Simulated assay, not measured.
Amino acid sequence: MAAARTPVLRHFLSCQPRALRVWNQRRWAQVHDVRFLATTQQPRNLVEKYRDKLDRKAREEGHNDIDSLKAAYADKIHALRKEADVVVPPLPPPPPPATPTTPNQQQQQPPPQIPKQPSSSSSTGIKPLSSILDLPKASALALQELTAIWRLHHAAQPTSLSAIIPAATFTTMQATARQHPQFVLPVPHPSQGAEMHFLQWTWDAPTRSATVLFTQLAEYKARGEFAAPHTTVTHYTDLADEGKGVVLMQGSVVRDRGVRVEDAQWLVVCLQRFYGGWDGIGGGEAQERAEERRRLLEWFGRGDGRFSVERLLEEAERMG
Rank of each mutant, 00 (worst) to 15 (best):
V184F: 07
P188G: 02
P229T: 10
R18D: 14
L161D: 01
V34I: 12
Y50T: 07
L146K: 04
P206R: 12
A79Y: 02
P186H: 04
V88S: 07
W299H: 13
I281F: 11
A29R: 12
L297A: 04
P97W: 09
Q250A: 14
A148R: 13
F12S: 05
R44I: 09
P96M: 10
F274L: 09
W299C: 08
E315K: 07
A316N: 11
D134H: 14
T39K: 07
R289I: 09
G251A: 08
A84R: 12
L46N: 02
L199C: 15
A264V: 03
D85F: 03
A227H: 08
L296D: 03
G320K: 11
G224L: 11
G243N: 10
D241Y: 03
P190I: 06
W299R: 09
L185V: 07
A218V: 09
S308R: 13
A175Q: 15
V309T: 12
M249H: 00
R293K: 12
G243R: 11
W28R: 15
Y275G: 00
A74H: 04
L135I: 15
A167E: 01
C270T: 01
F198Y: 15
M1T: 10
V261F: 05
P89R: 05
L213Q: 09
S139E: 13
S121E: 12
A290S: 13
P96W: 04
Q287D: 13
R295I: 02
R178Y: 08
K49V: 02
W201Y: 10
T171D: 13
T6C: 03
P43S: 09
G305P: 09
F274H: 12
W150C: 03
S252H: 13
